[in-house]
Design a binder for these strands. Sequence first.
DNA 1: GAGGATCCATGCGTGGATCCTG
DNA 2: CAGGATCCACGCATGGATCCTC
Lengths: 212, 212
Amino acid sequence: MARARELAGRTLAELAHRHGQTPPEDLRRAKGWFGQLIEESLGATAGSLAEPDFQRLGIELKTIPVGSDGRPKESTYVCTVPLTGGDGLVWEDSWVRRKLQRVLWIPVEAAPEIPLTERRAGSALLWELEPDLEATLRTDWEELMEMVCLGQLERISARHGTYLQIRPKAANSRALRWAVGETGERILTNPRGFYLRTVFTRQILRRHYALP
Amino acid sequence: MARARELAGRTLAELAHRHGQTPPEDLRRAKGWFGQLIEESLGATAGSLAEPDFQRLGIELKTIPVGSDGRPKESTYVCTVPLTGGDGLVWEDSWVRRKLQRVLWIPVEAAPEIPLTERRAGSALLWELEPDLEATLRTDWEELMEMVCLGQLERISARHGTYLQIRPKAANSRALRWAVGETGERILTNPRGFYLRTVFTRQILRRHYALP
DNA sequence: GAGGATCCATGCGTGGATCCTG
DNA sequence: CAGGATCCACGCATGGATCCTC
Protein backbone atom coordinates (compact mmCIF):
# COMPACT_ATOMS: atom_id res chain seq x y z
CA MET A 1 0.00 0.00 0.00
CA ALA A 2 2.94 2.32 0.65
CA ARG A 3 4.14 1.70 -2.89
CA ALA A 4 0.62 2.12 -4.24
CA ARG A 5 0.07 5.46 -2.51
CA GLU A 6 3.39 6.73 -3.72
CA LEU A 7 2.17 6.38 -7.30
CA ALA A 8 -0.36 9.18 -6.93
CA GLY A 9 0.52 12.15 -9.10
CA ARG A 10 3.36 10.44 -10.96
CA THR A 11 3.35 10.78 -14.70
CA LEU A 12 3.65 7.83 -17.03
CA ALA A 13 6.96 9.20 -18.26
CA GLU A 14 8.28 9.23 -14.71
CA LEU A 15 7.13 5.69 -13.96
CA ALA A 16 8.44 4.39 -17.25
CA HIS A 17 11.82 5.99 -16.61
CA ARG A 18 12.04 4.40 -13.16
CA HIS A 19 11.70 1.01 -14.74
CA GLY A 20 13.97 1.67 -17.67
CA GLN A 21 11.13 1.61 -20.14
CA THR A 22 10.29 3.75 -23.13
CA PRO A 23 6.63 4.75 -23.43
CA PRO A 24 4.96 3.74 -26.71
CA GLU A 25 3.84 6.42 -29.19
CA ASP A 26 0.22 5.72 -28.35
CA LEU A 27 -1.75 2.84 -26.87
CA ARG A 28 -3.14 1.50 -30.12
CA ARG A 29 -0.38 -1.07 -30.35
CA ALA A 30 0.33 -1.40 -26.65
CA LYS A 31 -3.05 -1.45 -25.03
CA GLY A 32 -1.90 -3.14 -21.88
CA TRP A 33 1.28 -1.13 -21.44
CA PHE A 34 0.17 1.06 -18.60
CA GLY A 35 -1.34 -1.76 -16.62
CA GLN A 36 1.85 -3.75 -16.86
CA LEU A 37 3.95 -0.76 -15.82
CA ILE A 38 1.84 -0.43 -12.67
CA GLU A 39 2.28 -4.13 -11.98
CA GLU A 40 6.02 -3.67 -12.03
CA SER A 41 5.83 -0.54 -9.91
CA LEU A 42 4.00 -2.45 -7.24
CA GLY A 43 6.42 -5.31 -7.17
CA ALA A 44 4.37 -7.90 -8.95
CA THR A 45 6.75 -10.05 -10.93
CA ALA A 46 6.54 -8.44 -14.34
CA GLY A 47 4.47 -10.54 -16.62
CA SER A 48 4.14 -13.36 -14.13
CA LEU A 49 0.83 -14.82 -15.13
CA ALA A 50 0.34 -17.45 -12.46
CA GLU A 51 1.21 -15.66 -9.24
CA PRO A 52 1.36 -11.89 -9.00
CA ASP A 53 2.12 -10.86 -5.45
CA PHE A 54 -1.38 -9.51 -5.16
CA GLN A 55 -3.02 -12.83 -5.71
CA ARG A 56 -1.06 -14.23 -2.82
CA LEU A 57 -2.56 -11.44 -0.80
CA GLY A 58 -5.95 -12.12 -2.33
CA ILE A 59 -5.86 -8.77 -4.09
CA GLU A 60 -6.60 -8.13 -7.75
CA LEU A 61 -4.95 -5.10 -9.37
CA LYS A 62 -6.89 -3.00 -11.87
CA THR A 63 -5.90 0.23 -13.53
CA ILE A 64 -8.87 2.30 -14.53
CA PRO A 65 -8.75 4.99 -17.21
CA VAL A 66 -10.61 8.13 -16.16
CA GLY A 67 -11.58 11.26 -18.09
CA SER A 68 -10.98 14.85 -17.01
CA ASP A 69 -14.15 14.57 -14.90
CA GLY A 70 -12.75 11.58 -13.05
CA ARG A 71 -15.24 9.18 -14.57
CA PRO A 72 -14.15 5.83 -16.05
CA LYS A 73 -13.76 5.92 -19.81
CA GLU A 74 -13.71 2.20 -20.49
CA SER A 75 -15.28 -0.98 -19.23
CA THR A 76 -13.07 -3.25 -17.12
CA TYR A 77 -12.14 -6.77 -18.07
CA VAL A 78 -12.62 -9.32 -15.30
CA CYS A 79 -12.00 -12.83 -16.58
CA THR A 80 -12.88 -15.22 -19.39
CA VAL A 81 -16.31 -16.81 -19.60
CA PRO A 82 -16.27 -20.60 -19.06
CA LEU A 83 -18.08 -21.70 -22.20
CA THR A 84 -18.63 -25.28 -21.24
CA GLY A 85 -20.45 -24.38 -18.08
CA GLY A 86 -19.45 -27.49 -16.15
CA ASP A 87 -17.79 -25.60 -13.29
CA GLY A 88 -21.08 -25.27 -11.48
CA LEU A 89 -23.36 -22.30 -11.25
CA VAL A 90 -22.57 -21.20 -7.73
CA TRP A 91 -21.76 -17.50 -7.50
CA GLU A 92 -19.68 -17.98 -4.38
CA ASP A 93 -17.30 -20.23 -6.30
CA SER A 94 -17.20 -18.15 -9.47
CA TRP A 95 -14.05 -16.61 -10.88
CA VAL A 96 -15.84 -13.29 -11.20
CA ARG A 97 -16.47 -13.11 -7.48
CA ARG A 98 -13.01 -14.32 -6.57
CA LYS A 99 -11.45 -11.69 -8.81
CA LEU A 100 -13.61 -8.88 -7.50
CA GLN A 101 -13.62 -9.67 -3.81
CA ARG A 102 -10.70 -7.36 -3.12
CA VAL A 103 -9.36 -5.02 -5.76
CA LEU A 104 -6.65 -2.41 -5.72
CA TRP A 105 -7.94 0.24 -8.13
CA ILE A 106 -5.40 2.62 -9.63
CA PRO A 107 -7.10 5.43 -11.58
CA VAL A 108 -5.09 6.91 -14.43
CA GLU A 109 -5.73 10.00 -16.51
CA ALA A 110 -7.01 9.11 -19.95
CA ALA A 111 -8.34 12.39 -21.34
CA PRO A 112 -7.34 12.55 -25.01
CA GLU A 113 -6.03 16.09 -24.69
CA ILE A 114 -3.28 14.99 -22.28
CA PRO A 115 -0.25 13.57 -24.08
CA LEU A 116 0.34 9.97 -23.10
CA THR A 117 3.60 10.52 -21.23
CA GLU A 118 2.15 13.34 -19.13
CA ARG A 119 -0.82 11.43 -17.86
CA ARG A 120 -0.75 10.88 -14.11
CA ALA A 121 -1.71 8.02 -11.86
CA GLY A 122 -4.30 8.78 -9.20
CA SER A 123 -4.79 7.73 -5.57
CA ALA A 124 -4.85 3.99 -5.13
CA LEU A 125 -8.02 2.54 -3.64
CA LEU A 126 -7.96 -0.79 -1.81
CA TRP A 127 -11.54 -1.85 -2.09
CA GLU A 128 -13.69 -4.78 -1.01
CA LEU A 129 -16.84 -5.92 -2.74
CA GLU A 130 -19.82 -4.31 -1.00
CA PRO A 131 -23.04 -6.28 -0.37
CA ASP A 132 -25.36 -4.12 -2.45
CA LEU A 133 -23.08 -4.17 -5.47
CA GLU A 134 -22.44 -7.86 -5.01
CA ALA A 135 -26.17 -8.61 -5.07
CA THR A 136 -26.51 -7.05 -8.52
CA LEU A 137 -23.34 -8.65 -9.84
CA ARG A 138 -24.59 -11.98 -8.64
CA THR A 139 -27.91 -11.63 -10.43
CA ASP A 140 -26.14 -10.59 -13.62
CA TRP A 141 -23.72 -13.47 -13.38
CA GLU A 142 -26.41 -16.06 -12.66
CA GLU A 143 -28.55 -14.92 -15.56
CA LEU A 144 -25.64 -14.84 -17.97
CA MET A 145 -24.19 -18.17 -16.89
CA GLU A 146 -27.58 -19.83 -17.10
CA MET A 147 -27.81 -18.74 -20.73
CA VAL A 148 -24.29 -20.03 -21.37
CA CYS A 149 -25.12 -23.40 -19.86
CA LEU A 150 -28.41 -23.66 -21.72
CA GLY A 151 -26.64 -23.17 -25.01
CA GLN A 152 -27.99 -19.66 -25.52
CA LEU A 153 -24.58 -18.05 -25.72
CA GLU A 154 -25.22 -16.75 -29.22
CA ARG A 155 -28.24 -14.88 -27.91
CA ILE A 156 -26.21 -13.00 -25.33
CA SER A 157 -25.23 -9.52 -26.38
CA ALA A 158 -23.30 -6.89 -24.48
CA ARG A 159 -26.68 -5.35 -23.61
CA HIS A 160 -27.43 -8.06 -21.05
CA GLY A 161 -26.52 -7.40 -17.43
CA THR A 162 -26.75 -4.34 -15.23
CA TYR A 163 -23.15 -4.14 -14.06
CA LEU A 164 -21.61 -7.22 -15.64
CA GLN A 165 -21.64 -7.85 -19.37
CA ILE A 166 -20.28 -10.50 -21.71
CA ARG A 167 -18.30 -9.34 -24.72
CA PRO A 168 -15.85 -10.94 -27.16
CA LYS A 169 -12.31 -11.33 -25.83
CA ALA A 170 -9.78 -12.54 -28.32
CA ALA A 171 -6.97 -11.61 -30.66
CA ASN A 172 -9.62 -11.24 -33.38
CA SER A 173 -12.99 -12.51 -34.44
CA ARG A 174 -11.51 -15.56 -36.15
CA ALA A 175 -10.51 -17.02 -32.79
CA LEU A 176 -12.79 -19.93 -31.88
CA ARG A 177 -13.60 -22.04 -28.84
CA TRP A 178 -15.93 -24.93 -28.17
CA ALA A 179 -19.17 -24.10 -26.41
CA VAL A 180 -22.60 -25.62 -25.81
CA GLY A 181 -25.21 -25.14 -28.56
CA GLU A 182 -28.98 -24.77 -28.35
CA THR A 183 -29.61 -28.50 -28.41
CA GLY A 184 -26.65 -29.43 -26.25
CA GLU A 185 -24.28 -30.11 -29.13
CA ARG A 186 -20.77 -28.68 -29.31
CA ILE A 187 -20.48 -25.51 -31.33
CA LEU A 188 -17.60 -23.23 -32.24
CA THR A 189 -17.88 -19.63 -31.10
CA ASN A 190 -15.73 -16.64 -30.29
CA PRO A 191 -14.15 -16.59 -26.84
CA ARG A 192 -15.88 -14.19 -24.43
CA GLY A 193 -14.95 -12.24 -21.35
CA PHE A 194 -16.81 -10.77 -18.40
CA TYR A 195 -16.54 -7.00 -18.25
CA LEU A 196 -17.64 -4.44 -15.68
CA ARG A 197 -19.64 -1.59 -17.18
CA THR A 198 -18.48 1.92 -16.42
CA VAL A 199 -21.64 2.51 -14.37
CA PHE A 200 -20.20 0.01 -11.92
CA THR A 201 -16.69 1.38 -11.67
CA ARG A 202 -18.10 4.89 -11.62
CA GLN A 203 -20.05 4.04 -8.48
CA ILE A 204 -16.99 2.66 -6.82
CA LEU A 205 -14.99 5.77 -7.51
CA ARG A 206 -17.90 7.97 -6.46
CA ARG A 207 -18.23 6.27 -3.11
CA HIS A 208 -14.63 6.76 -2.24
CA TYR A 209 -13.72 10.00 -3.91
CA ALA A 210 -15.96 13.07 -4.34
CA LEU A 211 -17.05 12.71 -7.94
CA PRO A 212 -19.98 13.41 -10.24
CA MET B 1 7.84 -38.93 -52.48
CA ALA B 2 9.72 -37.27 -55.32
CA ARG B 3 10.89 -34.59 -52.92
CA ALA B 4 11.73 -37.21 -50.30
CA ARG B 5 13.82 -39.32 -52.69
CA GLU B 6 15.68 -36.27 -53.85
CA LEU B 7 17.00 -35.78 -50.32
CA ALA B 8 19.16 -38.92 -50.45
CA GLY B 9 22.83 -38.06 -50.34
CA ARG B 10 22.36 -34.36 -49.61
CA THR B 11 24.43 -32.93 -46.82
CA LEU B 12 22.94 -30.89 -44.02
CA ALA B 13 24.90 -27.87 -45.21
CA GLU B 14 23.33 -28.21 -48.63
CA LEU B 15 19.80 -28.54 -47.29
CA ALA B 16 20.27 -25.67 -44.86
CA HIS B 17 21.56 -23.44 -47.65
CA ARG B 18 18.56 -24.24 -49.83
CA HIS B 19 16.31 -22.95 -47.12
CA GLY B 20 18.36 -19.94 -46.20
CA GLN B 21 19.35 -21.41 -42.86
CA THR B 22 22.60 -21.50 -40.94
CA PRO B 23 23.44 -24.83 -39.29
CA PRO B 24 24.02 -24.65 -35.52
CA GLU B 25 27.47 -25.35 -34.09
CA ASP B 26 26.25 -28.65 -32.70
CA LEU B 27 22.92 -30.18 -31.76
CA ARG B 28 23.19 -29.67 -28.03
CA ARG B 29 21.20 -26.48 -28.22
CA ALA B 30 19.20 -27.30 -31.31
CA LYS B 31 18.21 -30.89 -30.90
CA GLY B 32 15.29 -30.71 -33.27
CA TRP B 33 17.02 -28.69 -35.94
CA PHE B 34 17.55 -31.41 -38.46
CA GLY B 35 14.04 -32.76 -38.18
CA GLN B 36 12.60 -29.35 -38.79
CA LEU B 37 14.85 -28.78 -41.77
CA ILE B 38 13.53 -31.98 -43.32
CA GLU B 39 9.97 -30.86 -42.64
CA GLU B 40 10.61 -27.72 -44.62
CA SER B 41 12.36 -29.62 -47.38
CA LEU B 42 9.31 -31.79 -47.84
CA GLY B 43 6.90 -28.89 -47.99
CA ALA B 44 5.36 -29.20 -44.57
CA THR B 45 4.56 -25.72 -43.36
CA ALA B 46 7.59 -24.94 -41.22
CA GLY B 47 6.74 -25.25 -37.59
CA SER B 48 3.06 -25.72 -38.26
CA LEU B 49 2.06 -27.82 -35.34
CA ALA B 50 -1.54 -28.62 -36.15
CA GLU B 51 -1.50 -29.73 -39.77
CA PRO B 52 1.70 -30.73 -41.52
CA ASP B 53 0.98 -31.84 -45.06
CA PHE B 54 1.83 -35.37 -44.10
CA GLN B 55 -0.89 -35.64 -41.53
CA ARG B 56 -3.40 -34.74 -44.21
CA LEU B 57 -2.01 -37.66 -46.15
CA GLY B 58 -2.08 -39.80 -43.04
CA ILE B 59 1.70 -39.92 -43.00
CA GLU B 60 3.97 -39.24 -40.04
CA LEU B 61 7.48 -37.98 -40.74
CA LYS B 62 10.41 -39.22 -38.64
CA THR B 63 14.08 -38.55 -39.09
CA ILE B 64 16.21 -41.29 -37.65
CA PRO B 65 19.84 -40.81 -36.67
CA VAL B 66 22.01 -43.73 -37.80
CA GLY B 67 25.61 -44.62 -37.02
CA SER B 68 28.30 -45.55 -39.54
CA ASP B 69 26.90 -49.09 -39.51
CA GLY B 70 23.47 -47.80 -40.47
CA ARG B 71 21.93 -48.68 -37.13
CA PRO B 72 19.74 -46.22 -35.23
CA LYS B 73 21.60 -44.36 -32.52
CA GLU B 74 18.64 -43.03 -30.58
CA SER B 75 15.16 -44.03 -29.57
CA THR B 76 12.32 -42.35 -31.45
CA TYR B 77 9.71 -40.19 -29.79
CA VAL B 78 6.14 -41.05 -30.74
CA CYS B 79 3.68 -39.01 -28.69
CA THR B 80 2.85 -37.96 -25.16
CA VAL B 81 1.35 -40.40 -22.68
CA PRO B 82 -2.24 -39.54 -21.68
CA LEU B 83 -1.84 -39.51 -17.92
CA THR B 84 -5.48 -39.37 -17.04
CA GLY B 85 -6.24 -42.50 -18.94
CA GLY B 86 -9.83 -41.63 -19.74
CA ASP B 87 -9.41 -41.87 -23.51
CA GLY B 88 -10.15 -45.57 -23.43
CA LEU B 89 -7.82 -48.47 -23.62
CA VAL B 90 -8.45 -49.53 -27.18
CA TRP B 91 -5.26 -49.94 -29.16
CA GLU B 92 -7.03 -49.29 -32.44
CA ASP B 93 -7.97 -45.79 -31.25
CA SER B 94 -4.65 -44.99 -29.63
CA TRP B 95 -2.46 -42.09 -30.67
CA VAL B 96 0.52 -44.44 -30.82
CA ARG B 97 -1.11 -46.56 -33.49
CA ARG B 98 -2.41 -43.59 -35.43
CA LYS B 99 1.04 -42.04 -35.48
CA LEU B 100 2.79 -45.24 -36.50
CA GLN B 101 0.35 -46.56 -39.07
CA ARG B 102 2.23 -44.91 -41.92
CA VAL B 103 5.61 -43.30 -41.42
CA LEU B 104 8.03 -41.69 -43.81
CA TRP B 105 11.43 -42.54 -42.32
CA ILE B 106 14.37 -40.38 -43.31
CA PRO B 107 17.67 -41.82 -42.06
CA VAL B 108 20.43 -39.31 -41.39
CA GLU B 109 24.09 -39.85 -40.64
CA ALA B 110 24.87 -39.32 -36.98
CA ALA B 111 28.33 -40.78 -36.51
CA PRO B 112 30.27 -38.47 -34.21
CA GLU B 113 33.29 -38.44 -36.49
CA ILE B 114 31.34 -36.72 -39.26
CA PRO B 115 31.10 -32.96 -38.82
CA LEU B 116 27.50 -31.86 -38.48
CA THR B 117 27.29 -29.96 -41.75
CA GLU B 118 28.71 -32.84 -43.78
CA ARG B 119 26.26 -35.44 -42.55
CA ARG B 120 24.02 -36.76 -45.30
CA ALA B 121 20.38 -37.74 -45.49
CA GLY B 122 19.65 -41.30 -46.59
CA SER B 123 17.01 -42.91 -48.77
CA ALA B 124 13.50 -42.14 -47.63
CA LEU B 125 11.33 -45.11 -46.68
CA LEU B 126 7.55 -44.87 -46.84
CA TRP B 127 6.55 -47.58 -44.44
CA GLU B 128 3.35 -49.09 -43.10
CA LEU B 129 2.98 -50.81 -39.77
CA GLU B 130 3.43 -54.54 -40.27
CA PRO B 131 1.19 -57.07 -38.44
CA ASP B 132 3.94 -58.82 -36.50
CA LEU B 133 5.45 -55.59 -35.23
CA GLU B 134 2.02 -54.21 -34.48
CA ALA B 135 1.17 -57.20 -32.31
CA THR B 136 4.15 -56.52 -30.06
CA LEU B 137 3.53 -52.79 -29.97
CA ARG B 138 -0.03 -53.46 -29.01
CA THR B 139 0.94 -55.68 -26.12
CA ASP B 140 3.45 -53.12 -24.90
CA TRP B 141 0.93 -50.33 -25.16
CA GLU B 142 -1.83 -52.24 -23.41
CA GLU B 143 0.42 -53.22 -20.51
CA LEU B 144 1.77 -49.72 -20.11
CA MET B 145 -1.58 -47.98 -20.39
CA GLU B 146 -3.13 -50.37 -17.93
CA MET B 147 -0.49 -49.37 -15.40
CA VAL B 148 -1.12 -45.70 -16.13
CA CYS B 149 -4.85 -46.10 -15.60
CA LEU B 150 -4.39 -48.11 -12.43
CA GLY B 151 -2.30 -45.36 -10.92
CA GLN B 152 0.94 -47.28 -11.21
CA LEU B 153 2.66 -44.69 -13.35
CA GLU B 154 5.42 -44.16 -10.81
CA ARG B 155 6.27 -47.85 -11.06
CA ILE B 156 6.82 -47.67 -14.80
CA SER B 157 10.45 -47.34 -15.78
CA ALA B 158 11.98 -47.18 -19.23
CA ARG B 159 12.71 -50.90 -18.84
CA HIS B 160 9.11 -51.86 -19.43
CA GLY B 161 8.04 -52.76 -22.95
CA THR B 162 9.68 -54.71 -25.74
CA TYR B 163 9.50 -52.12 -28.50
CA LEU B 164 7.62 -49.28 -26.86
CA GLN B 165 8.82 -47.61 -23.68
CA ILE B 166 7.67 -44.73 -21.50
CA ARG B 167 10.21 -42.07 -20.58
CA PRO B 168 10.09 -38.51 -19.26
CA LYS B 169 9.33 -35.89 -21.90
CA ALA B 170 9.60 -32.31 -20.74
CA ALA B 171 11.69 -29.17 -20.68
CA ASN B 172 13.13 -30.44 -17.39
CA SER B 173 12.32 -32.58 -14.41
CA ARG B 174 10.48 -29.74 -12.64
CA ALA B 175 7.69 -29.87 -15.21
CA LEU B 176 4.59 -31.43 -13.66
CA ARG B 177 1.27 -32.81 -14.85
CA TRP B 178 -1.76 -34.28 -13.12
CA ALA B 179 -2.05 -38.03 -13.19
CA VAL B 180 -3.85 -40.82 -11.37
CA GLY B 181 -2.32 -42.07 -8.14
CA GLU B 182 -2.29 -45.54 -6.56
CA THR B 183 -5.59 -45.03 -4.79
CA GLY B 184 -7.27 -43.13 -7.57
CA GLU B 185 -6.37 -39.68 -6.25
CA ARG B 186 -4.82 -36.95 -8.39
CA ILE B 187 -1.06 -36.74 -8.17
CA LEU B 188 1.56 -34.50 -9.75
CA THR B 189 4.16 -36.22 -11.87
CA ASN B 190 6.56 -35.54 -14.70
CA PRO B 191 5.07 -35.60 -18.18
CA ARG B 192 5.95 -38.74 -20.15
CA GLY B 193 6.26 -39.76 -23.75
CA PHE B 194 6.06 -43.00 -25.69
CA TYR B 195 9.33 -43.86 -27.39
CA LEU B 196 10.32 -46.58 -29.85
CA ARG B 197 13.42 -48.48 -28.79
CA THR B 198 16.22 -48.75 -31.30
CA VAL B 199 15.59 -52.50 -31.57
CA PHE B 200 12.33 -51.59 -33.23
CA THR B 201 13.62 -49.01 -35.69
CA ARG B 202 16.60 -51.22 -36.40
CA GLN B 203 14.26 -53.98 -37.54
CA ILE B 204 12.44 -51.63 -39.83
CA LEU B 205 15.61 -50.46 -41.47
CA ARG B 206 16.89 -54.02 -41.70
CA ARG B 207 13.79 -55.21 -43.50
CA HIS B 208 14.01 -52.57 -46.15
CA TYR B 209 17.70 -52.00 -46.55
CA ALA B 210 20.50 -54.57 -46.31
CA LEU B 211 21.84 -53.97 -42.81
CA PRO B 212 23.40 -55.80 -39.87
C1' DG C 1 -21.48 5.86 -26.27
C1' DA C 2 -20.65 1.54 -26.14
C1' DG C 3 -20.81 -2.95 -28.47
C1' DG C 4 -18.00 -5.68 -30.97
C1' DA C 5 -13.18 -6.04 -32.53
C1' DT C 6 -8.64 -5.92 -31.77
C1' DC C 7 -3.52 -5.57 -30.02
C1' DC C 8 0.89 -6.84 -27.19
C1' DA C 9 3.40 -9.70 -23.73
C1' DT C 10 4.19 -13.81 -21.95
C1' DG C 11 3.47 -18.48 -19.90
C1' DC C 12 2.64 -23.09 -21.03
C1' DG C 13 2.29 -27.18 -23.68
C1' DT C 14 3.51 -29.93 -27.64
C1' DG C 15 6.38 -31.42 -31.33
C1' DG C 16 11.07 -31.56 -33.15
C1' DA C 17 14.51 -34.58 -30.94
C1' DT C 18 19.51 -35.44 -28.56
C1' DC C 19 22.30 -35.07 -24.32
C1' DC C 20 24.88 -37.14 -20.66
C1' DT C 21 25.84 -39.60 -16.45
C1' DG C 22 26.06 -43.68 -13.62
C1' DC D 1 24.32 -48.25 -23.04
C1' DA D 2 20.36 -46.42 -22.36
C1' DG D 3 17.41 -44.44 -18.81
C1' DG D 4 16.38 -40.25 -17.20
C1' DA D 5 17.11 -35.35 -18.26
C1' DT D 6 17.15 -31.73 -21.16
C1' DC D 7 16.94 -28.15 -25.19
C1' DC D 8 14.74 -25.13 -29.07
C1' DA D 9 10.70 -23.52 -31.85
C1' DC D 10 6.39 -22.22 -31.99
C1' DG D 11 1.25 -22.36 -31.56
C1' DC D 12 -2.21 -21.24 -28.46
C1' DA D 13 -4.38 -19.33 -24.47
C1' DT D 14 -4.63 -15.92 -21.01
C1' DG D 15 -3.88 -11.51 -18.84
C1' DG D 16 -2.90 -6.65 -19.64
C1' DA D 17 -6.42 -3.66 -21.71
C1' DT D 18 -8.02 0.07 -25.57
C1' DC D 19 -9.63 0.80 -30.36
C1' DC D 20 -13.05 2.14 -33.57
C1' DT D 21 -17.15 2.05 -35.98
C1' DC D 22 -22.01 2.28 -36.05
